[in-house]
Design a protein around this nucleic acid. Structure first.
Lengths: 213, 213
DNA sequence: CCAAACCCTGAACCATGGTTCATTTCATAA
DNA sequence: TTATGAAATGAACCATGGTTCAGGGTTTGG
Protein backbone atom coordinates (compact mmCIF):
# COMPACT_ATOMS: atom_id res chain seq x y z
CA UNK A 1 0.00 0.00 0.00
CA UNK A 2 1.44 3.28 -1.00
CA UNK A 3 -1.12 5.99 -0.78
CA UNK A 4 -4.32 6.63 1.07
CA UNK A 5 -6.26 9.83 1.41
CA UNK A 6 -5.77 11.08 4.89
CA UNK A 7 -8.39 13.04 6.76
CA UNK A 8 -6.65 16.31 6.30
CA UNK A 9 -6.54 15.90 2.55
CA UNK A 10 -10.18 14.97 2.33
CA UNK A 11 -11.04 18.06 4.28
CA UNK A 12 -8.89 20.13 1.98
CA UNK A 13 -10.60 18.73 -1.06
CA UNK A 14 -14.01 19.46 0.35
CA UNK A 15 -12.91 22.93 1.23
CA UNK A 16 -11.74 23.48 -2.32
CA UNK A 17 -15.00 22.29 -3.72
CA UNK A 18 -16.86 24.62 -1.46
CA UNK A 19 -14.59 27.49 -2.33
CA UNK A 20 -15.24 26.93 -6.02
CA UNK A 21 -18.97 26.72 -5.52
CA UNK A 22 -18.95 29.85 -3.41
CA UNK A 23 -16.95 31.72 -6.01
CA UNK A 24 -19.35 30.67 -8.72
CA UNK A 25 -22.33 31.61 -6.60
CA UNK A 26 -20.88 35.03 -5.93
CA UNK A 27 -20.31 35.63 -9.61
CA UNK A 28 -23.81 34.50 -10.47
CA UNK A 29 -25.21 36.76 -7.85
CA UNK A 30 -23.25 39.72 -9.14
CA UNK A 31 -23.68 39.24 -12.85
CA UNK A 32 -25.80 36.22 -13.60
CA UNK A 33 -24.76 32.83 -14.93
CA UNK A 34 -23.41 34.53 -17.98
CA UNK A 35 -20.75 36.19 -15.85
CA UNK A 36 -19.62 32.89 -14.35
CA UNK A 37 -17.07 31.89 -16.96
CA UNK A 38 -14.68 29.16 -15.98
CA UNK A 39 -11.82 31.65 -16.02
CA UNK A 40 -13.68 34.02 -13.73
CA UNK A 41 -14.69 31.28 -11.33
CA UNK A 42 -11.15 29.96 -11.15
CA UNK A 43 -9.73 33.40 -10.55
CA UNK A 44 -12.25 34.18 -7.83
CA UNK A 45 -11.71 30.82 -6.15
CA UNK A 46 -7.95 31.21 -6.34
CA UNK A 47 -7.30 28.07 -8.37
CA UNK A 48 -6.33 27.28 -11.93
CA UNK A 49 -9.00 26.65 -14.51
CA UNK A 50 -7.92 23.06 -14.89
CA UNK A 51 -8.59 22.48 -11.22
CA UNK A 52 -12.27 23.18 -11.72
CA UNK A 53 -12.49 20.03 -13.78
CA UNK A 54 -11.26 17.94 -10.90
CA UNK A 55 -14.38 18.90 -9.00
CA UNK A 56 -16.94 19.35 -11.72
CA UNK A 57 -17.34 17.52 -14.99
CA UNK A 58 -18.11 20.66 -16.95
CA UNK A 59 -19.16 24.23 -16.65
CA UNK A 60 -22.73 23.11 -17.04
CA UNK A 61 -22.43 20.70 -14.16
CA UNK A 62 -20.90 23.37 -11.97
CA UNK A 63 -23.57 25.92 -12.73
CA UNK A 64 -26.25 23.32 -12.26
CA UNK A 65 -25.01 22.80 -8.73
CA UNK A 66 -25.05 26.54 -8.19
CA UNK A 67 -28.58 26.79 -9.54
CA UNK A 68 -29.74 24.02 -7.25
CA UNK A 69 -28.03 25.48 -4.24
CA UNK A 70 -29.76 28.79 -4.76
CA UNK A 71 -33.12 27.53 -5.86
CA UNK A 72 -33.40 24.94 -3.13
CA UNK A 73 -33.23 27.64 -0.52
CA UNK A 74 -36.00 29.55 -2.20
CA UNK A 75 -38.04 26.48 -2.84
CA UNK A 76 -38.02 25.14 0.66
CA UNK A 77 -39.15 28.49 2.00
CA UNK A 78 -42.25 28.33 -0.13
CA UNK A 79 -42.82 24.71 0.70
CA UNK A 80 -42.63 25.48 4.38
CA UNK A 81 -45.29 28.11 4.06
CA UNK A 82 -47.44 25.90 1.89
CA UNK A 83 -47.24 23.04 4.37
CA UNK A 84 -47.85 25.28 7.34
CA UNK A 85 -50.99 25.73 9.39
CA UNK A 86 -53.99 27.77 8.38
CA UNK A 87 -56.67 27.55 5.78
CA UNK A 88 -55.60 26.70 2.21
CA UNK A 89 -56.59 30.11 0.89
CA UNK A 90 -54.57 31.85 3.56
CA UNK A 91 -51.56 29.70 2.82
CA UNK A 92 -51.90 30.40 -0.85
CA UNK A 93 -51.91 34.08 -0.07
CA UNK A 94 -48.83 33.71 2.04
CA UNK A 95 -46.96 31.65 -0.51
CA UNK A 96 -47.67 34.04 -3.33
CA UNK A 97 -46.87 37.04 -1.23
CA UNK A 98 -43.71 35.40 0.00
CA UNK A 99 -42.63 34.58 -3.50
CA UNK A 100 -43.38 38.05 -4.78
CA UNK A 101 -41.76 39.97 -1.98
CA UNK A 102 -38.71 37.74 -2.02
CA UNK A 103 -38.32 38.15 -5.74
CA UNK A 104 -38.79 41.89 -5.53
CA UNK A 105 -36.23 42.15 -2.79
CA UNK A 106 -33.56 40.01 -4.41
CA UNK A 107 -34.36 41.20 -7.90
CA UNK A 108 -30.89 40.54 -9.17
CA UNK A 109 -30.83 36.97 -8.03
CA UNK A 110 -34.42 36.45 -9.09
CA UNK A 111 -33.44 37.56 -12.56
CA UNK A 112 -30.81 34.86 -12.82
CA UNK A 113 -33.11 32.19 -11.50
CA UNK A 114 -36.17 33.19 -13.45
CA UNK A 115 -35.40 35.30 -16.48
CA UNK A 116 -31.77 35.25 -17.59
CA UNK A 117 -31.34 33.51 -20.94
CA UNK A 118 -30.12 29.99 -20.28
CA UNK A 119 -29.34 27.05 -22.50
CA UNK A 120 -29.26 23.31 -22.22
CA UNK A 121 -29.40 21.68 -18.84
CA UNK A 122 -29.72 24.99 -17.05
CA UNK A 123 -32.82 25.84 -19.03
CA UNK A 124 -34.22 22.45 -18.12
CA UNK A 125 -33.47 23.00 -14.48
CA UNK A 126 -35.21 26.35 -14.52
CA UNK A 127 -38.24 24.83 -16.12
CA UNK A 128 -38.35 22.22 -13.39
CA UNK A 129 -37.93 24.95 -10.82
CA UNK A 130 -40.85 26.88 -12.22
CA UNK A 131 -42.94 23.78 -12.43
CA UNK A 132 -42.31 23.14 -8.77
CA UNK A 133 -43.66 26.60 -8.07
CA UNK A 134 -46.70 25.90 -10.15
CA UNK A 135 -47.23 22.57 -8.42
CA UNK A 136 -47.33 24.27 -5.04
CA UNK A 137 -49.84 26.82 -6.24
CA UNK A 138 -51.93 24.18 -7.89
CA UNK A 139 -52.19 22.03 -4.82
CA UNK A 140 -53.23 24.95 -2.65
CA UNK A 141 -55.80 26.05 -5.18
CA UNK A 142 -57.28 22.58 -5.22
CA UNK A 143 -57.37 22.45 -1.46
CA UNK A 144 -59.01 25.83 -1.33
CA UNK A 145 -61.54 24.72 -3.89
CA UNK A 146 -62.29 21.56 -1.93
CA UNK A 147 -62.80 23.68 1.15
CA UNK A 148 -65.11 25.96 -0.78
CA UNK A 149 -62.85 28.95 -0.20
CA UNK A 150 -62.52 29.88 -3.86
CA UNK A 151 -64.68 29.51 -6.92
CA UNK A 152 -64.28 26.81 -9.55
CA UNK A 153 -61.43 27.30 -11.98
CA UNK A 154 -58.81 25.39 -13.91
CA UNK A 155 -56.28 24.96 -11.13
CA UNK A 156 -53.53 23.72 -13.39
CA UNK A 157 -53.64 26.61 -15.80
CA UNK A 158 -54.18 29.18 -13.11
CA UNK A 159 -51.20 27.91 -11.20
CA UNK A 160 -49.01 28.13 -14.26
CA UNK A 161 -50.21 31.64 -14.91
CA UNK A 162 -49.38 32.67 -11.36
CA UNK A 163 -45.95 31.13 -11.61
CA UNK A 164 -45.24 33.18 -14.69
CA UNK A 165 -46.89 36.43 -13.79
CA UNK A 166 -44.54 37.23 -10.95
CA UNK A 167 -41.22 36.81 -12.76
CA UNK A 168 -42.37 38.63 -15.80
CA UNK A 169 -43.86 41.55 -13.95
CA UNK A 170 -40.44 41.80 -12.41
CA UNK A 171 -38.48 41.80 -15.62
CA UNK A 172 -40.84 44.05 -17.52
CA UNK A 173 -40.21 46.82 -15.07
CA UNK A 174 -36.47 46.69 -15.44
CA UNK A 175 -33.87 46.26 -12.74
CA UNK A 176 -34.10 49.78 -11.31
CA UNK A 177 -37.84 50.17 -11.39
CA UNK A 178 -38.95 47.19 -9.34
CA UNK A 179 -42.69 46.84 -8.79
CA UNK A 180 -44.34 46.96 -5.40
CA UNK A 181 -44.54 43.50 -3.87
CA UNK A 182 -47.95 44.06 -2.35
CA UNK A 183 -49.50 45.30 -5.55
CA UNK A 184 -47.90 42.44 -7.42
CA UNK A 185 -49.12 39.71 -5.13
CA UNK A 186 -52.53 41.34 -4.99
CA UNK A 187 -52.83 41.24 -8.77
CA UNK A 188 -51.64 37.69 -8.94
CA UNK A 189 -53.91 36.49 -6.16
CA UNK A 190 -56.89 37.87 -7.97
CA UNK A 191 -56.24 35.16 -10.55
CA UNK A 192 -57.18 32.63 -7.93
CA UNK A 193 -60.20 34.69 -7.00
CA UNK A 194 -58.69 35.95 -3.77
CA UNK A 195 -58.67 39.44 -2.33
CA UNK A 196 -55.34 40.56 -0.99
CA UNK A 197 -54.80 40.49 2.73
CA UNK A 198 -53.97 43.88 4.16
CA UNK A 199 -52.03 42.74 7.20
CA UNK A 200 -48.49 41.58 6.55
CA UNK A 201 -49.32 38.18 7.75
CA UNK A 202 -47.86 36.00 10.44
CA UNK A 203 -45.90 33.19 8.96
CA UNK A 204 -44.17 35.42 6.48
CA UNK A 205 -42.32 37.68 8.82
CA UNK A 206 -39.96 35.13 10.20
CA UNK A 207 -39.31 33.60 6.83
CA UNK A 208 -38.48 36.57 4.71
CA UNK A 209 -35.97 38.52 6.72
CA UNK A 210 -32.43 37.21 6.42
CA UNK A 211 -30.08 37.10 3.49
CA UNK A 212 -31.75 36.82 0.09
CA UNK A 213 -28.49 38.65 -0.53
CA UNK B 1 -21.20 57.81 -67.20
CA UNK B 2 -20.54 54.15 -67.09
CA UNK B 3 -22.94 52.46 -64.74
CA UNK B 4 -26.41 53.09 -63.40
CA UNK B 5 -28.71 50.73 -61.58
CA UNK B 6 -31.44 49.81 -63.97
CA UNK B 7 -34.93 49.00 -62.85
CA UNK B 8 -34.50 45.32 -63.36
CA UNK B 9 -31.50 45.24 -61.08
CA UNK B 10 -33.21 47.18 -58.36
CA UNK B 11 -36.09 44.77 -58.50
CA UNK B 12 -33.69 41.87 -58.33
CA UNK B 13 -32.02 43.32 -55.29
CA UNK B 14 -35.29 43.79 -53.54
CA UNK B 15 -36.30 40.28 -54.43
CA UNK B 16 -33.07 38.97 -52.96
CA UNK B 17 -33.60 40.85 -49.76
CA UNK B 18 -37.07 39.44 -49.51
CA UNK B 19 -35.86 35.97 -50.26
CA UNK B 20 -33.30 36.20 -47.49
CA UNK B 21 -35.84 37.51 -45.02
CA UNK B 22 -38.28 34.80 -45.97
CA UNK B 23 -35.67 32.12 -45.57
CA UNK B 24 -34.75 33.43 -42.16
CA UNK B 25 -38.38 33.67 -41.14
CA UNK B 26 -39.00 30.10 -42.23
CA UNK B 27 -36.04 28.86 -40.22
CA UNK B 28 -37.15 30.81 -37.17
CA UNK B 29 -40.59 29.41 -37.49
CA UNK B 30 -39.30 25.87 -37.75
CA UNK B 31 -36.60 25.93 -35.12
CA UNK B 32 -36.43 29.31 -33.43
CA UNK B 33 -33.86 32.05 -33.82
CA UNK B 34 -31.24 29.64 -32.64
CA UNK B 35 -31.73 27.63 -35.82
CA UNK B 36 -31.27 30.64 -38.06
CA UNK B 37 -27.50 30.54 -38.44
CA UNK B 38 -26.07 32.59 -41.25
CA UNK B 39 -25.05 29.43 -43.03
CA UNK B 40 -28.53 27.98 -42.79
CA UNK B 41 -30.19 31.20 -43.93
CA UNK B 42 -27.85 31.49 -46.89
CA UNK B 43 -28.44 27.90 -47.89
CA UNK B 44 -32.18 28.23 -47.62
CA UNK B 45 -32.20 31.49 -49.54
CA UNK B 46 -29.95 30.03 -52.21
CA UNK B 47 -27.14 32.55 -51.81
CA UNK B 48 -23.66 32.56 -50.35
CA UNK B 49 -23.08 33.58 -46.76
CA UNK B 50 -21.16 36.63 -47.85
CA UNK B 51 -24.17 37.86 -49.75
CA UNK B 52 -26.17 38.17 -46.58
CA UNK B 53 -23.87 40.95 -45.53
CA UNK B 54 -24.72 42.98 -48.59
CA UNK B 55 -28.28 43.17 -47.30
CA UNK B 56 -27.88 43.12 -43.56
CA UNK B 57 -25.14 44.54 -41.41
CA UNK B 58 -24.99 41.51 -39.16
CA UNK B 59 -26.86 38.45 -38.09
CA UNK B 60 -28.35 40.45 -35.28
CA UNK B 61 -29.67 43.04 -37.69
CA UNK B 62 -31.16 40.36 -39.89
CA UNK B 63 -32.89 38.60 -37.04
CA UNK B 64 -34.10 41.89 -35.68
CA UNK B 65 -35.87 42.48 -38.94
CA UNK B 66 -37.36 39.03 -38.74
CA UNK B 67 -38.49 39.61 -35.20
CA UNK B 68 -40.13 42.86 -36.14
CA UNK B 69 -41.80 41.39 -39.16
CA UNK B 70 -43.38 38.68 -37.09
CA UNK B 71 -44.18 40.66 -33.99
CA UNK B 72 -45.67 43.58 -35.88
CA UNK B 73 -48.31 41.31 -37.32
CA UNK B 74 -49.22 40.05 -33.88
CA UNK B 75 -49.07 43.45 -32.34
CA UNK B 76 -51.33 45.18 -34.78
CA UNK B 77 -53.94 42.50 -34.32
CA UNK B 78 -54.12 43.24 -30.64
CA UNK B 79 -54.06 46.96 -31.22
CA UNK B 80 -56.94 46.68 -33.62
CA UNK B 81 -59.02 44.88 -31.06
CA UNK B 82 -58.03 47.29 -28.33
CA UNK B 83 -58.97 50.29 -30.45
CA UNK B 84 -62.23 48.73 -31.58
CA UNK B 85 -65.76 49.47 -30.45
CA UNK B 86 -67.33 48.23 -27.25
CA UNK B 87 -66.87 48.87 -23.58
CA UNK B 88 -63.31 48.88 -22.24
CA UNK B 89 -63.86 45.74 -20.19
CA UNK B 90 -65.18 43.87 -23.20
CA UNK B 91 -62.23 44.97 -25.30
CA UNK B 92 -59.85 43.91 -22.60
CA UNK B 93 -61.49 40.51 -22.59
CA UNK B 94 -61.16 40.30 -26.33
CA UNK B 95 -57.56 41.39 -26.40
CA UNK B 96 -56.53 38.93 -23.72
CA UNK B 97 -58.47 36.12 -25.26
CA UNK B 98 -57.08 36.95 -28.67
CA UNK B 99 -53.55 36.97 -27.35
CA UNK B 100 -54.02 33.70 -25.51
CA UNK B 101 -55.72 31.79 -28.28
CA UNK B 102 -53.28 33.05 -30.85
CA UNK B 103 -50.32 32.06 -28.72
CA UNK B 104 -51.83 28.66 -28.01
CA UNK B 105 -52.46 28.06 -31.66
CA UNK B 106 -49.06 29.11 -32.93
CA UNK B 107 -47.22 27.74 -29.95
CA UNK B 108 -44.03 27.22 -31.83
CA UNK B 109 -43.84 30.77 -33.09
CA UNK B 110 -45.02 32.11 -29.76
CA UNK B 111 -42.13 30.32 -28.14
CA UNK B 112 -39.61 32.12 -30.32
CA UNK B 113 -41.21 35.47 -29.79
CA UNK B 114 -41.83 35.13 -26.08
CA UNK B 115 -39.68 32.50 -24.45
CA UNK B 116 -36.68 31.37 -26.47
CA UNK B 117 -33.40 32.44 -24.89
CA UNK B 118 -32.19 35.54 -26.72
CA UNK B 119 -29.22 37.82 -26.27
CA UNK B 120 -28.33 41.37 -27.00
CA UNK B 121 -30.50 43.43 -29.28
CA UNK B 122 -32.98 40.62 -29.75
CA UNK B 123 -33.56 40.40 -26.03
CA UNK B 124 -34.13 44.14 -26.00
CA UNK B 125 -36.59 43.90 -28.81
CA UNK B 126 -38.54 41.22 -27.05
CA UNK B 127 -38.68 43.29 -23.92
CA UNK B 128 -40.07 46.16 -25.94
CA UNK B 129 -42.54 43.79 -27.53
CA UNK B 130 -43.76 42.59 -24.17
CA UNK B 131 -43.95 46.10 -22.87
CA UNK B 132 -46.16 47.01 -25.77
CA UNK B 133 -48.47 44.22 -24.73
CA UNK B 134 -48.49 45.45 -21.19
CA UNK B 135 -49.17 49.00 -22.35
CA UNK B 136 -52.26 47.87 -24.21
CA UNK B 137 -53.55 46.00 -21.20
CA UNK B 138 -52.79 48.88 -18.90
CA UNK B 139 -54.66 51.40 -20.96
CA UNK B 140 -57.73 49.21 -21.17
CA UNK B 141 -57.65 48.55 -17.46
CA UNK B 142 -57.51 52.26 -16.77
CA UNK B 143 -60.37 52.91 -19.12
CA UNK B 144 -62.40 50.17 -17.50
CA UNK B 145 -61.63 51.61 -14.11
CA UNK B 146 -62.67 55.07 -15.20
CA UNK B 147 -65.90 53.61 -16.50
CA UNK B 148 -66.44 51.83 -13.21
CA UNK B 149 -66.40 48.45 -14.88
CA UNK B 150 -63.69 46.98 -12.68
CA UNK B 151 -62.55 47.53 -9.14
CA UNK B 152 -59.55 49.61 -8.14
CA UNK B 153 -56.16 48.02 -8.69
CA UNK B 154 -52.62 48.85 -9.69
CA UNK B 155 -53.12 48.90 -13.43
CA UNK B 156 -49.43 49.03 -14.25
CA UNK B 157 -48.50 45.98 -12.24
CA UNK B 158 -51.58 44.05 -13.21
CA UNK B 159 -50.91 44.68 -16.87
CA UNK B 160 -47.36 43.44 -16.53
CA UNK B 161 -48.57 40.34 -14.74
CA UNK B 162 -51.06 39.63 -17.50
CA UNK B 163 -48.41 40.09 -20.13
CA UNK B 164 -46.25 37.53 -18.42
CA UNK B 165 -48.81 35.02 -17.32
CA UNK B 166 -49.80 33.98 -20.81
CA UNK B 167 -46.37 33.20 -22.21
CA UNK B 168 -45.24 31.38 -19.14
CA UNK B 169 -48.37 29.27 -18.81
CA UNK B 170 -47.58 28.29 -22.35
CA UNK B 171 -43.98 27.31 -21.79
CA UNK B 172 -44.59 25.58 -18.49
CA UNK B 173 -46.85 23.10 -20.14
CA UNK B 174 -44.34 22.09 -22.74
CA UNK B 175 -44.73 22.14 -26.50
CA UNK B 176 -46.93 19.04 -26.76
CA UNK B 177 -49.19 19.74 -23.84
CA UNK B 178 -50.54 23.16 -24.70
CA UNK B 179 -53.09 24.63 -22.28
CA UNK B 180 -56.65 25.43 -23.20
CA UNK B 181 -56.94 28.96 -24.48
CA UNK B 182 -60.26 29.61 -22.79
CA UNK B 183 -59.09 28.42 -19.42
CA UNK B 184 -55.93 30.44 -19.81
CA UNK B 185 -57.60 33.70 -20.70
CA UNK B 186 -60.19 33.10 -17.99
CA UNK B 187 -57.49 32.78 -15.37
CA UNK B 188 -55.65 35.80 -16.63
CA UNK B 189 -58.74 37.96 -16.86
CA UNK B 190 -59.51 37.23 -13.26
CA UNK B 191 -56.42 39.28 -12.47
CA UNK B 192 -58.24 42.31 -13.77
CA UNK B 193 -61.31 41.32 -11.80
CA UNK B 194 -63.22 40.16 -14.84
CA UNK B 195 -65.27 37.04 -15.31
CA UNK B 196 -64.66 35.20 -18.52
CA UNK B 197 -67.16 35.63 -21.29
CA UNK B 198 -68.75 32.39 -22.35
CA UNK B 199 -69.57 33.28 -25.95
CA UNK B 200 -66.63 33.27 -28.33
CA UNK B 201 -67.08 36.89 -29.00
CA UNK B 202 -67.62 38.84 -32.17
CA UNK B 203 -64.50 40.72 -33.05
CA UNK B 204 -62.28 37.75 -32.41
CA UNK B 205 -63.60 35.36 -34.96
CA UNK B 206 -62.56 37.26 -38.01
CA UNK B 207 -59.19 38.11 -36.61
CA UNK B 208 -57.89 34.80 -35.43
CA UNK B 209 -58.47 32.44 -38.28
CA UNK B 210 -55.81 32.70 -40.97
CA UNK B 211 -52.15 31.79 -40.94
CA UNK B 212 -50.58 32.27 -37.50
CA UNK B 213 -48.11 29.77 -38.90
C1' DC C 1 14.87 9.65 1.77
C1' DC C 2 12.30 7.30 -1.86
C1' DA C 3 8.77 5.60 -4.88
C1' DA C 4 3.99 5.74 -5.85
C1' DA C 5 -0.26 7.97 -6.24
C1' DC C 6 -2.48 12.09 -6.50
C1' DC C 7 -3.38 16.94 -7.11
C1' DC C 8 -2.63 21.55 -9.23
C1' DT C 9 -1.15 24.47 -12.92
C1' DG C 10 -1.98 27.24 -17.04
C1' DA C 11 -0.83 27.50 -21.65
C1' DA C 12 -2.27 25.17 -25.68
C1' DC C 13 -6.08 23.12 -27.89
C1' DC C 14 -10.40 22.95 -30.14
C1' DA C 15 -15.29 23.74 -31.69
C1' DT C 16 -18.52 26.89 -32.99
C1' DG C 17 -20.27 30.21 -35.84
C1' DG C 18 -20.20 35.06 -37.25
C1' DT C 19 -17.53 38.08 -40.41
C1' DT C 20 -14.31 39.45 -44.04
C1' DC C 21 -12.28 40.01 -48.61
C1' DA C 22 -9.68 38.65 -52.83
C1' DT C 23 -11.61 36.78 -56.71
C1' DT C 24 -15.09 35.87 -60.05
C1' DT C 25 -19.35 36.86 -62.36
C1' DC C 26 -22.61 39.94 -64.18
C1' DA C 27 -24.87 44.28 -65.80
C1' DT C 28 -24.24 48.79 -67.93
C1' DA C 29 -23.10 52.17 -71.37
C1' DA C 30 -20.10 53.74 -74.89
C1' DT D 1 -16.99 44.43 -77.87
C1' DT D 2 -15.05 46.25 -74.09
C1' DA D 3 -14.04 48.97 -70.01
C1' DT D 4 -16.12 49.88 -65.61
C1' DG D 5 -18.39 49.40 -61.49
C1' DA D 6 -21.50 46.59 -58.77
C1' DA D 7 -22.81 42.19 -56.92
C1' DA D 8 -22.04 37.43 -55.54
C1' DT D 9 -19.09 33.93 -54.01
C1' DG D 10 -17.15 30.90 -50.40
C1' DA D 11 -13.02 29.73 -48.32
C1' DA D 12 -10.19 31.82 -44.92
C1' DC D 13 -10.26 34.44 -40.84
C1' DC D 14 -11.08 35.45 -36.16
C1' DA D 15 -13.05 35.85 -31.38
C1' DT D 16 -14.86 33.55 -27.71
C1' DG D 17 -14.69 30.52 -24.13
C1' DG D 18 -14.94 25.71 -22.63
C1' DT D 19 -11.75 21.74 -22.20
C1' DT D 20 -7.45 19.06 -22.09
C1' DC D 21 -2.93 17.46 -20.65
C1' DA D 22 2.15 17.29 -19.97
C1' DG D 23 4.87 19.01 -16.39
C1' DG D 24 5.85 20.20 -11.57
C1' DG D 25 4.72 19.87 -6.84
C1' DT D 26 2.77 17.43 -2.57
C1' DT D 27 1.24 13.78 0.41
C1' DT D 28 1.61 9.01 1.93
C1' DG D 29 3.65 4.64 3.50
C1' DG D 30 7.84 2.23 3.84
Amino acid sequence: MAYRKTGKVVAQLEANRTRILDAARALVFAGGFQAASMAAVAAKAGVATGTLYRYFASREALLLDVFRAISDVEMSRLEDIAAGPGLPAARLRDVVHGFASRAVRGARQAYSLLAEPLDGALAEERLAYRRRHAAIFERLIREAQAAGEVAAMDAHVTAAAIAGAIPSALTLHGPDNVPDADALSAAVLRMAGLDPHTDTSSSLEELSHDQSA
